[in-house]
Design a protein around this nucleic acid. Sequence first.
DNA 1: ATTGAGACCTGTCGGC
DNA 2: TGCCGACAGGTCTCAA
Length: 255
Amino acid sequence: MVGARIERVELRRPDLRSPFPRRFAQRVAGATTRAVTRRAKYLLAQLSSGDSLLMHLGMSGSFRVVVAGAADEAGAHDHVVFHLASGADVVFNDPRRFGFMDLVSASRLDSHPSLRGLGPEPLSDAFDAATLARACAGKRTSIKAALLDQRVVAGLGNIYAVEALHRAGISPLRRASILAAPGGAPRDAAGRLVAAIKQVLAEAIDRQTATRPSTERFRVYDRERERCRRRRCPGVIRRRTQAGRSTFYCPVCQR
DNA sequence: ATTGAGACCTGTCGGC
DNA sequence: TGCCGACAGGTCTCAA
């Protein structure tokens, strides 16, 4: 989309997770996309009009690019179509409609409700052990719940939170505040957790470009009652609910 | 203020 | 074979 002019926007329904903003299609039409970036799980398309298109894929959202007028253009759950001047159509599809789009003027981006208060990007240098420890200080909730809190670190979802905790050898049931306790066990938990988060995310991103079978993707997620994949660990993966989401962990090697 | 539970939505899956 | 309920995810809203 970068450099492309958006000639027309087709809204095939009035809302996703929430209604589209007023005159959404009209405000986007005619603009050229200057850049496409990301913040947390949000996509941002900077438009020549001065507005930014703020988008979230929710659970099931996806974009695909098709030749204008192609036979498969209007499928089920195709909710938004960006018709580009180049002759390509960019189609947003989202069966569960947990996705979201908004239009925000550049000056108000930082204060937008969805972006304001977001924690550091996990893959940036700004996300380090000290930062994580500080964010967890005094929290009485579990480490797992803290990792899902986008104010602590932006962009971790349930699966990668669970995977990162396993790699770091930290039980998801522990209180978040132990990460802040200098002498608190386990030793340097914050440092190990930060490293594990970066590793898990980097590998996940790599895997998308390296097309390979989706087997053995996860070490704990969705593996209840299966053997722990850590070397020589005799543990069996358990499942329980935390903050309304499924947590998977090894009771032997995660402490 | 912090925390947790419930709602939203629909494709998929297990059980009957 | 077909139906039905449970479940998954991310984020927001509401209540404790």
